[in-house]
Amino acid sequence: MAARKFVLNENLRELGLLMFIIALSAGVQARNPVFLTVSNLTSLFTNTAILAILAVGMTLVLITRGIDLSIGATIAFAGMVSSLTVAAYPTISPALSLLQGTLIGAFIGSIIGLLVARFNVLPIIATLGLMNIVRGLTFMVSGGKWVSSYQMSTGFKAIATGKTLGLNNLVVIAILVYALAWYFMNHTRTGRRIYAVGSNPEAAAISGIPKKRLVFLAYALMGALAGLAGVLWVAKFASAQGDTAMGYELQVIAACILGGVSISGGVGRLSGLILGTVLLGILNNALPLINVSPFWQMGIQGITVLAAVLTNVMVKRNTDRNALRRRAI
C-alpha cells in the first residue's frame, strides 16, 4: 500500500497563499508593530470568525456550481428575529437564540435549495430574489427600528464577548463549525458526493447519486450557517439593524475564491479556505494599521478577487496547453 505522498503541485496554491500571508504580515508589521500583538491578533481572529463560518457554507454551494447572494439578508433577518425575541423575553438562554437563528436560516436556505434543485431556477436569480424578500422582511419585522444594546440581555451579548477555555466564543464556534465541516466534507459519503456532483454532474447521475437532494442540502446548510452567523453578528455588534450585513455575501465569496474554491464547481478544501479567510481578515484588520483609508478596503478586495480568478484561468489554460503538447500526434 502506497503511503500518502506530499504532492507539491497539489498544494502549490495553498503554499503560495501562505507565503503571501506571511509576506503581507511582515510588511504590515514593519510599518506598524501593533499588528503582531496578542490583542490585535485576538481582535483579528474574532472579527474574522463570522466570515470564516459563512465561507464554509458558501464553499458547499460553490462546489455544486451554484452561488448564494442572499446570505447578507439572511444574516440580518435571523439576527433581527433572534434579538427581537431576546428583547421580548430577556430570560431566554443564549443557546436557544443560536438555535433559533440557525433554524430560521435553514428555512430560508431550504427555500432557495428547493427553487434551485427542484425547479431549476438559476442560483443567481433565486438568491437575488430571496435576498430582496428576506431583506424586506427584516425591515418589516423590526418596523424599521433598531434593536440596541440595552434591549439585549447580557447572556445574549456574551455569545460574542464571552470566553470559553480562554478563547473568544466566536472563535470557539468557528472552530467547532470547521471541525464539523471537516468531518462532513472529508469523511461522510454525503459530503464527498457533493464534490462528485460538482465535479461531474453527468457522471454522478449515471452512478445513481441523488444530485437534487445534495444541491438542496448545500443551500440549506448555507442558510443554516448564515442564520447562526446572524445571531453571532448582532451579539457581537450589540445591535440589530435592517441593513445589517448588506453586501456581506461579496466578502464571503471573495474569501472562498481567494481560498481556492473553484467557481466552476467540484473544488474547494478547508485548508485553503482558512487561508483565504485569514488573508481577507488581515486585509481588513491591517489596512487601518498602516494608515490606508478604510475606503480603500472594498476596492482592494475586488481587485484581489479578480486577480485570483484570472490567475486560476491562466494556470488552467497553461496546463491544458501542455497536455495537448504531450499528445502524440
Binding site: I67, I124, L250, M298, G299, G302, I303, V305, L306, V309
Partner: peptide, 23 residues
C-alpha cells in the same frame, strides 16, 4: 476569459467599481 461566467466577472467588477467610488 470565456471560462468565467458573466456572474463571476460582473460580481468582481461590482465590488471594484463601487470600491473605486468609495476611494
Amino acid at each position: 476569459f470565456k471560462e468565467l461566467s458573466s456572474v463571476i466577472v460582473t460580481l468582481s467588477t461590482m465590488i471594484i467599481y463601487r470600491g473605486i467610488a468609495y476611494i
